[in-house]
Structure formats: C-alpha cells, structure tokens
Amino acid sequence: MSGEIVERVVNYVVSSIVDDQEAVEVTMVDRGEDEVVAEVRTAPGEMGRVIGRGGRVARAIRSVAQAAAEEEGLTAGVEFVD
C-alpha cells in the first residue's frame, strides 16, 4: 500500500503533539503515481498546535513526511484541514 509509512509517521507525530489523540485523523490521498498527500484533521482548536507559530511545526511535519515518503520511493505532501 502506498504511503503507508507516511500515514503512520504523520499520525504518530501529530498524535504526539495534540491532547485529543483519538480525534486525530490522517487520510491519504493519491495524487498521481508517485505522489501522496496526507490530510490531517484534529479536534477543534488543536490545529494551531500542529501548525505552530509561523507554521514551524507544520513545516517540520512536512519535512519528516517527505523523508518517510522517500522510504517508499514517493513524494508526499501534508495538508492541515481545519
């Protein structure tokens, strides 16, 4: 399954940051052959934490997701859905 590592990694990282881990949802969307996008949803009000000041945390999550994607020979994006 493509993007499995990305999904697990993104889920793990986001869950480590929020309070309400049950509410974390990561949905993988295929964008073409080698590209996946992880859509992240959290409990209302917690997205700010996941994005961080000036988007620093979001940027870090994207970077780590990309590293995870490379393990599978993919390109990955992360979208934070509020």
């Binding site: 480590s16 940051i17 945390v57 940027r59 870090a60 970077s63 780590v64 590293a67 490379e70």
Partner: peptide
C-alpha cells in the same frame, strides 16, 4: 541516516518536532 536528509533538513525538522513534543508533554 534517512532522518538526516539533504543538508540536515530532516534532522532539523525532527529537532523541532522533538522540542515541540517535550514542550507539550
């Protein structure tokens, strides 16, 4: 090494995330 990345970009990201997690927990 997969977590280092080009020009340590992934390492920096992991650093940022680790700090965030410590702060949160």
């Amino acid at each position: 090494e997969a977590l280092v990345g080009p020009k340590a970009s992934v390492l920096q990201a992991v650093h940022e995330l680790t700090k965030t997690v410590v702060q949160r927990k």
